[in-house]
Nucleic acid binder design. Sequence first.
DNA 1: TTGTATGCGTTATCAG
DNA 2: CTGATAACGCATACAA
Lengths: 340, 340
Amino acid sequence: MATIREVSKRAGVSVATVSRVVNGNQKVVEATRQKVLEAMSELGYEPNSFARSLATNKSETIGMVVGELAGPFFGEMMQFAERVIRDEGKHLIITSGHASLAEERDAIEFLLKRRCDALILHLDLMSDAEILKRVDAEQTPIILVNRLVPELIDQCIYLDNEAGGYLATQHLIERGHRRIACITGPLYKSDARDRLTGYRNALKMADIPYDDQLVVEGDYLEQGGEAALERLFRRDTHFTGLVAGNDLMAIGVIKALRRNGLSVPDDCSVVGYDDVVMAGYIEPGLTTVRVPIEQFGAEAGRLALNLGEGHSFAVQHLFQPTLVERASTRVYNPAKQKSG
Amino acid sequence: MATIREVSKRAGVSVATVSRVVNGNQKVVEATRQKVLEAMSELGYEPNSFARSLATNKSETIGMVVGELAGPFFGEMMQFAERVIRDEGKHLIITSGHASLAEERDAIEFLLKRRCDALILHLDLMSDAEILKRVDAEQTPIILVNRLVPELIDQCIYLDNEAGGYLATQHLIERGHRRIACITGPLYKSDARDRLTGYRNALKMADIPYDDQLVVEGDYLEQGGEAALERLFRRDTHFTGLVAGNDLMAIGVIKALRRNGLSVPDDCSVVGYDDVVMAGYIEPGLTTVRVPIEQFGAEAGRLALNLGEGHSFAVQHLFQPTLVERASTRVYNPAKQKSG
DNA sequence: TTGTATGCGTTATCAG
DNA sequence: CTGATAACGCATACAA
């Protein structure tokens, strides 16, 4: 591996000059520049990134923490973030938090130790307070994805979850449903709370009284969806439509409904949230709220590039969800409906 | 950020001694060791990884190239590889080849420039010859996943694809099918060829003559599966079962069969390959050949750790596929069957 | 515009 | 067992 010194000897110039043409930030006479370029390519010179980082105290690297490396949601996000970042000649290092607070902390430590220029974090467990504390303590810029921490609003990329919850519920109301159940995500998460608020707002707009017998807290997992539905059944209440906090739970719900001899959407309409790949493949196709996850990734990448010094892309912070209608919802039909 | 020098001052020892206790590779008297440890924690000292890498010419990092960051197959692989690698205090840097030869090359360059201690490559496009050339040229150990390059057999983690093709076909034969179509992957890929060989072997064992009218080359994509089925139909041949080169194509096939008014499995049994997450969710559940992708990831991680100096885990190179039976296959029923 | 010299934070060699 | 000190490869302030 050729070093800058070898290049400088071969080109008959000083290492400083070579450094200048490599980084292209200072003036170098065209003739000498050519000599250097030539020497570089002859030797197949590649700057040593460690030496450079040591000298500049920058790593040309952006770190990212996701919940899981596997799974449709994060995959798309990583994909688009990487694209943006790599287009700028920088690199993305991804680590996962594995749905545990300890691992989230560990992942962040790791990235910080690697002196990333900026961090893109998708944190599930860490509290706002702890995040704030860290942001204050570290000098590394931090971007939060799919989460809004009011004090850090300029560093957040997030979705209007209230609008999403509204959208899902309104979709059922428009189709004549009035008894609409709701399985929320874990309510310690703000996105779950916001979606629930959207649900309540939609009911209010339609003058449908809120009935807490129809609401149960889930865990964003498929099994949790099944379990939540069972709880609903035990309450012996009645509903013809259901909005789930995410697609995974919606899928669990559909399974459980069928197990109970009910048909989707004939006996009960079901709306999900996220629009994961699977939503289009299950039977029936899941009507769901689409989260623009690719854009989350791309915008987070841009924001990281901006904050990590150097760039100034325009970035969109707040995104609006949209409804994707498939086959799991239908108009309320009093004659057929027998659910709940 | 405290440096080693500050720690040495505070502890009243030389930097060399501090370095020794940090790395724990040379003897240090317990008393001084304690002093150093104390100074370290008081200052919150964290070694600078760049300086260390510069001095040692090692990065404590393993690079990985996958086809796509998104998608079930790679997600699982990354997940398990990361776990293994991070357990050893090293890091995994992932980049994607985006299904293009240029990007595969670029991704490798990138990782090499980062001086990774070893590379885990899942290459789709690069030829054996080019891989060999690179392995010879670079001193960085290279591990190949889901691919067998005979000359590099000790650096490969791969599946017995011939056995997989055999398994899928045999499953249908056992259930009485004799006219079995086969949609292969792109035949320039050795895994696709091996699966096809497995298919032929199974037929031979059952004394079923090979009929090339029943075989068509696909592209491992869902649409390719649909297209391949259309070609089969145009040939006006007859079959009651079909083995697809992977799950995505199998899903496409099922879609296309239905569009043509045929039922799976009543009119035609379909077997996939890979056992991606979706296989369990589509209707009907897809009978498929399971590839132990998590193990691929974990073993590749271990092999990388071994080859990147330091470790000596036992690693399994060759894996056997297994059959997962779901609802897309059934016994041949001459009375009902009307396919092809 | 170009060259010289120094520092970045560690590791490792060589004395002591 | 411990301390100086020379690399490691590059960037940059300061001179020329």
